[in-house]
């Protein structure tokens, strides 16, 4: 076996040891044991794989999605009962009906999916800030983010405090509800601290039921909301309280 073949085979070798007994990997593993360079390559490969798998393992699906799926359990129970006696045409009919119900549930689920939109009082800005995993657009300056948001019809801040406007940008993201409302989030870094700037449109501004111009704390975030020419904006950051006055 040559190094190229061994590397190709071992690219499928999982770093958690689940494949240790698989005979298809044995020869390639033995090849690595005999060759110090290959042994080092394998160790490095496993470290890389572990690092990547750990990073992806952080991702969790939304809890509401799981609840929505489990809500279909009564339908699956009917399917199970119907499947118990396949010889009876009555049971076949029941199976068909149950399947129809499930398909209806899927259709309704796709329409309603997660229930009605959030109402004021249910909305937590810190939770929205904490939910940001992927950005829709990345750029290193705030102006580029504003242009991108503007071109897509998403809410854009009319003006920003200087510290935020000149901050190093990371990217932005748009949230929407089923009533057509949108919230833009511009993510910037100030002195190594990540700062989320939220911009609400007319449809979403009432979600933010918080006093304007006063910092408050929520789930380890420091937050403040304000209005600028009828545009509601807010900031969420985990920066130390001492640094907060400099942001605005």
């Amino acid at each position: 076996m040559d190094n190229h073949t061994a590397k190709e085979i071992l690219s499928a070798y999982r770093p958690n040891g689940a494949d240790a007994e698989d005979p298809n990997f044995r020869a390639a593993l033995q090849h690595c044991e005999r060759d110090p360079a290959m042994k080092a390559w394998l160790a490095d490969q496993e470290q890389f794989d572990r690092r990547f798998a750990d990073a992806l393992a952080d991702i969790r699906g939304p809890a509401k999605g799981r609840e929505s799926i489990l809500a279909t359990l009564p339908f699956s129970r009917e399917v199970t009962a119907a499947a118990g006696n396949r010889r009876s045409w009555l049971k076949f009919t029941a199976l068909g009906l149950a399947a129809l119900l499930v398909l209806s549930a899927v259709y309704m689920g796709s329409l309603l999916r997660l229930g009605p939109s959030l109402e004021p009082g249910e909305f937590a800005l810190s939770r929205l800030a904490g939910s940001i995993v992927l950005l829709d657009y990345r750029a290193s300056d705030v102006t580029s983010l504003q242009t991108w948001l503007h071109d897509r019809g998403a809410p854009v801040p009319g003006s920003l405090p200087e510290a935020l406007a000149l901050a190093s940008a990371v990217g932005c993201k748009v949230f929407s509800n089923d009533r057509g409302g949108q919230i833009s989030v511009l993510c910037v870094k100030i002195e190594g601290n990540l700062v989320h700037i939220f911009v609400f449109d007319d449809q979403t501004r009432d979600l933010l039921d918080a006093p304007r111009g006063q910092w408050w704390q929520e789930n380890n975030y420091n937050l403040i909301a304000w209005e600028d020419n009828a545009t509601v904006m807010a900031v969420a950051t985990r920066a130390e309280p001492l640094l907060l006055p400099a942001l605005l």
Binding site: A57, G61, R113, D136, S176, I183
Partner: peptide, 21 residues
């Protein structure tokens, strides 16, 4: 790209990753 406001991912509660990772 636009993310539903109703769709807010749950934060992970696992222990922090080791330094350097």
């Amino acid at each position: 790209p636009s993310t539903s406001l109703d769709l807010v991912a749950e934060p992970s509660h696992e222990s922090p990753r080791p330094p350097g990772s």
